[in-house]
Design a binder for these strands. Structure first.
Lengths: 371, 371
DNA sequence: GCACTTTGGCAACAGCGTTGCGAAAGTGGA
DNA sequence: TCCACTTTCGCAACGCTGTTGCCAAAGTGC
């Protein structure tokens, strides 16, 4: 780490506090206390941010006996990011500002299974992003928009894939994509930075920066839709593991020598859970999911469990209660209060993953993730 | 982060590379390449380290056409650390140098269950540490030794406890310790920095800095003795979770509605595994353990699984093979080579935890952990 | 109106890593 | 044996970081 690194580290620290303060804003002195820097250093940093248009003064606090504190606020329109959710039957693209607030959206059906070439998908995603940028930002190309305020494009899709290299592996159902360098191909086509990640990781990242804000540095996002997966956030950053394979929650074995699963193993959580759903026994599905969630909570000692996905959205109360019961029981056995690890269904909905994908590019700006 | 923080960060980076180079040493230019700093910055940093006695020049490399590179080496004797393993029936204390090499050891039986007061245990540990320091370093008290080279004292014991605050909770079998501030009490008594952690975490930390050195940034240490637990190392640092509860591996449920466990739940890994051991069916114990390990590998996408503890030490081959089989099968299902995640039994033995406890104080010096 | 408190910018400063340059210490060919 | 060349590595000057000392600005309360 050199001086440039130190500078961008501290700048990101300040930006993150500004972002979390939201519309309320935050004063310079409070920034100094929270970052551990001196007020003078904060003044210098915020002066640079104001010059770049990323921050602005926004009113004053009430005086406490002296000069009142000036409130600083993040200028959300100073930066934008595109998030693309590549789902099995549709492509959803959103444009967000620096706060992660969606300011534009496009949805088009796309039967990925019917399409052979990865290049065609690249083209479809690129066209989607270009249209969105043109429509909302009024720029003709992402390249032109980048000069203004576009930070980049994030793409989320079902795994497995390599986040670091931006290369797809044997994406379930699309063996022809194995080894395709999506990040570089799309980056060349659009001329802006591109990041690629698993759908569950993107969703977890999005939630880490919004829903799970308060106090929860570590949580798990459990996604139950046509499949079962999880995104893990540890210490504010997404944990992806050595091969972006972390969060393989669906094939956790919770019944020794249980019923066979499509993966080749037996007693997998996904198989048990989906079978219960198919039977219409949502309560049992929630109970089974709760066992897996309790295992996860115990292993990682996380603060919060968030549930999402189409199947959960169909009966959020049942799942939150069923899973919550198992997690609470575990907490009690450990000598903790019942509500030590809350379990909640995510209200969001179909847009959760796309919003998180946009955050793939925004997170590094605020010092979250590998940026 | 301020300039002082930057300085100690880079110093720790250099120290860590020196430590990992071991007796071979490492040249200034190589340090510059590995840290990303300029050669000149490395020269300044190493000059300070040499002045403090932490590093020394040790010979030269062969010339490649110009002035040969000067090899630098960590001076292990420049610092020492005491590691204490508070086991159910004995207290083991070791004194290590900066490399983590054991240079002194003391073992005394101590029936913790028979002793009522936590203060008595503090006194026993303190006496043990003082004797060890006097014996090896020739100092009359840790306070005097600290002035010379003693970094501090690390204590490892079965959980649950709070690592951050150094406070014990309901340590299994010793309810009278609940809420006892071991770190502060021992710190006052000895006059040197003290760290407290779970035995499995300490062992994992020790292995992270020695055995698992090469390439493995993330691994799990699974400990099977009278109980079953795990220590998780993620990105080179021990993952403890919000309440130092991470690594609760023994009560992962892997058999839905299985046999009851002492914890109050059913189908826990520990219950199944210990029952198999009690029956003499080591193969089955290894298979069951393998299911849990494979779950863990899938969830966190780690690089390596290490097995330890008395029960494993009794049949290391059987356990390594049995667990390895399940982990390899999972790797193959994921499309990875069979040996993508190696499983090994730790050769160490009874001293593993005590050595790791000593590293609790050394790790921050090398930028590992919260230091 | 005045004393006091608190905020926050200007200027000088110490200390970080970086750059420019030269001495030291080798190799290899004449 | 000498000399050109390569490579290492420290000294000095430098740019930039966050810090400190100081003071103007902007409030409150008597």
């Amino acid at each position: 780490m050199n001086l440039l690194g130190l500078r961008s580290h501290n700048t990101a620290l300040v930006l993150d506090l500004l972002r979390r303060a939201g519309a309320d804003g935050i004063s310079r002195l409070e920034l100094a206390e929270r970052t551990g820097l001196t007020p003078q250093a904060v003044s210098k940093i915020t002066a640079r941010l104001r010059e770049r248009g990323l921050a602005a003064e926004a009113g004053r606090r009430a005086s406490t006996g002296g000069k009142p504190r000036t409130v600083l606020r993040l200028v959300p329109e100073a930066g934008h990011s595109v998030g693309v959710h590549l789902d099995r039957d549709e492509v959803r693209a959103v444009l967000t500002d620096l706060n992660g607030t969606v300011v534009g959206e496009r949805l088009r059906p796309l039967d990925l299974a019917a399409r052979a070439g990865a290049e065609e998908v690249v083209e479809a995603v690129a066209a989607q992003a270009e249209a969105l940028v043109g429509q909302v930002l009024g720029a003709e190309s992402p390249r032109a928009a980048a000069a203004a305020s576009l930070v980049g494009v994030g793409v989320a899709l079902p795994g497995p894939l390599d986040h670091r290299g931006g290369v797809l592996h044997r994406v379930t159902g699309f063996p022809q994509w194995d080894g395709f360098p999506l990040r570089d191909a799309l980056g060349r086509r659009l001329g802006v930075p591109v990041a690629v990640d698993k759908d569950t990781n993107a969703a977890a990242l999005g939630l880490a920066l919004t829903a799970a804000e308060d106090g929860a540095g570590s949580f798990a996002y459990v996604h139950l839709g046509t499949g079962l997966g999880a995104g893990l956030v540890i210490g504010g950053a997404v944990h992806r593991g050595a091969r972006t394979g972390a969060g393989e929650f669906g094939h956790q074995v919770i019944q020794l020598d249980g019923p066979p699963c499509g993966c080749g193993d037996r007693g997998c959580l996904e198989a048990l859970c989906l079978a219960a759903v198919a039977r219409g026994d949502v309560g049992e599905a929630a109970r089974v999911l709760g066992v897996g969630a309790a295992n996860l909570v115990g292993l990682l000692d996380i603060d919060l469990v968030l549930l999402g996905g189409r199947t959960v959205a169909a009966a959020p109360g049942v799942f939150a209660a069923g899973v919550g019961e198992r997690v609470a029981a575990r907490a009690v056995r450990e000598g903790l209060p019942r509500d030590a690890v809350p379990v909640r269904a995510v209200p969001g909905g179909a847009r959760t993953v796309a919003e998180g994908a946009a955050q793939l590019l925004l997170a590094p700006v605020f010092g979250r993730g590998e940026g």
